[in-house]
Amino acid sequence: MTVMRTAAVIGTGLIGTSAALALTARGVTVHLRDQDPDAARTAAALGAGVVDEPPGRVDLAVVAVPPAHVARTLAEAQSAGLARGYLDVASVKGGPGRDLAGLGFDLTQYIGTHPMAGRERSGPLAATAELFEGRPWVLTPTAQTDTEVLNLALELVALCRAVPVVMDAEAHDRAVALVSHTPQLLSSLVAARLQHAEESAVRLCGQGIRDVTRIAASDPGMWMDILSANPGPVADVLSAVAADLDETVRALRAMESADDGKRQEGGAGIEDVLRRGNAGRVRVPGKHGTAPAAYEVVAVLIGDQPGELARLFADAHAARVNIEDVRIEHSTGQQAGLAQLMVEPRSAPVLGVALRERGWSIRQ
């Protein structure tokens, strides 16, 4: 059985540093490299590893650089005999694999991977050893991938406490175009409508627009690297979305008509979009990767003071109610917000009563 004792992480951004932190925390000696020496030193200062060169071959080299630089970085590392096995964590898999073959890379020592985790912030200071816990980590082995390399990759996933998912590289790229890359662009498109909006409109922003535009805060440079490596599949998804948008615009225009028949037809079109959205949302995995459960929401008014959330969770614990999920809706211009506690339906009345008894204001 393969046991990883040493690793090299090339690229100390969010993903690379997070992986290094997880490995170091579990006893693996990690050697850090980055084209920006300050980034590597920052990661080392956070406890992610050391910037010293390894004395010999490491067990696994983890390449965490933008997709356009993956093949060259891997080829240089293999040429130097850095590791027994090599993998990358880029969000696109087909292109790097083809580039490596063109460079004459020994593909028996390589496996493409992609952890489905990230944050709006980038860089080593945004990293955390818990970033991958419970998240899918895609592995794309080929017929050429050596069993030892596959086992090293599986060990990395286990040490990061992620969930391994084996896929074909091209299927992976189509999948992430749908569930990751297109949502990023759509979020950015909606957020772009706010750039020159009237201030009176922006002041009305609530939780819905915050949810939709959250990932629009991501680094444009990083996303240009990703989208440049997967433009075709993303364009295919956006083309289908564009067709839906055209139909939706026509339906909305019809709802403005003085003709009852056209208004009804337009309304039916909008209802169809909303119902298809319901059906698609149901397929998004919920807690622990299972089908999403139907939770009840207990909304609690909380003040903007230190310790309020901790006190709320402690009171929920005292009521012996498990909080399945939580969202916070902030009140514009006020030092207060709503903590939306998602609980099992049978637990909602119990939690509501218990929190009222402890002085909390429960909102419908």
Score class of each variant (00 low, 15 high):
A169C: 02
M167G: 07
G123I: 02
E198S: 13
A216S: 13
L150R: 08
A158H: 08
L139M: 10
M222D: 01
D146I: 11
M167V: 10
S122L: 01
T142D: 00
A126R: 01
R135S: 02
H196G: 09
W137G: 05
A197V: 05
H181N: 06
G123D: 00
R193E: 15
A127H: 03
D173L: 09
A217I: 06
L194K: 02
Q144R: 15
G123P: 04
P164M: 01
L227C: 09
M222W: 14
E130H: 14
C205R: 11
H181K: 00
V179L: 11
T140S: 03
V179A: 08
L189A: 15
T140R: 04
P164Q: 01
R210T: 12
V163D: 04
R210D: 06
V138T: 12
E198V: 07
L156A: 04
L194F: 13
L152M: 14
A162F: 07
L178R: 12
P141C: 00
V165F: 02
D225Y: 06
A127R: 01
L227A: 07
T182L: 12
E133R: 14
V179Q: 03
A126M: 01
E198P: 14
A175G: 07
E120R: 09
G221I: 08
V138R: 00
P115N: 08
H172T: 09
A169H: 06
L156C: 06
R193N: 11
W223D: 00
G118Q: 00
T128N: 04
C160T: 14
L154S: 04
A217E: 11
H196S: 15
R121M: 12
A169G: 03
V138Q: 01
E199P: 09
E198D: 15
F132T: 09
D168Q: 10
A143R: 13
P115K: 05
H172L: 07
T182E: 01
R174F: 10
P220V: 11
V165N: 04
P141N: 02
V165P: 09
S187Q: 03
E170M: 12
R203F: 13
L125Y: 01
R135Q: 13
L125Q: 13
E130G: 07
L204G: 07
E155M: 01
A158L: 05
M167C: 10
A192I: 10
R174H: 13
H114C: 12
V176L: 10
A201H: 10
A197H: 09
V138W: 03
T213M: 04
D173F: 05
L152W: 09
S187G: 04
L154E: 13
L139F: 08
R161E: 15
E133F: 04
L186S: 00
S122A: 14
P136N: 05
H181G: 03
V212Q: 11
R121E: 15
A126I: 04
E170W: 10
W137C: 05
A127G: 04
C205P: 02
E148A: 15
A129G: 12
R193D: 14
T147A: 15
R193A: 11
D211W: 03
R210I: 05
L178Q: 11
G206T: 09
C205S: 15
I209C: 00
A126S: 12
D225A: 12
V149N: 05
R121F: 08
A158Q: 10
G208L: 05
A201M: 08
G123M: 00
S218I: 08
A171G: 06
R161W: 08
E170T: 12
A191I: 02
G134I: 04
R121A: 15
A217H: 10
L150E: 12
F132A: 06
E198R: 14
